[in-house]
């Protein structure tokens, strides 16, 4: 990514090298590999429970934001 940010013209070989590994390709696609690896360290059931936690937390945030917007 930093190669593109530098603005310098890169050869196709250098571009291929910078996104050559599987992990680099995933980061380049915008996937947070640290989050994914954390998820893969859990059992399927733990992943499902984590989804429920995240879902309910998102709902509570949404509700709080609605209340905030209603006041302002």
């Amino acid at each position: 990514m930093s190669d593109f940010a530098s603005g310098e013209e890169k050869t196709s070989k250098e571009v291929s090298f910078s996104i050559g590994s599987g992990e680099s390709k995933a980061e380049f696609s915008g996937i947070d590999m640290s989050l994914l690896e954390d998820s893969l360290s859990k059992t399927p059931w733990e992943r499902m429970l984590a989804n429920d936690d995240a879902l309910n937390f998102a709902e509570s945030l949404r509700s709080a934001m609605l209340q905030h917007n209603a006041k302002s």
Binding site: D32, L35, L36, S39, L40, K42, P44, R47, M48, A50, N51, A54, L55, A58
Partner: peptide, 14 residues
Amino acid sequence: GFAAVSHGVTLVTR
């Protein structure tokens, strides 16, 4: 989506 979660996808499903 919940099947994807079970496989490890970190996107939240409703």
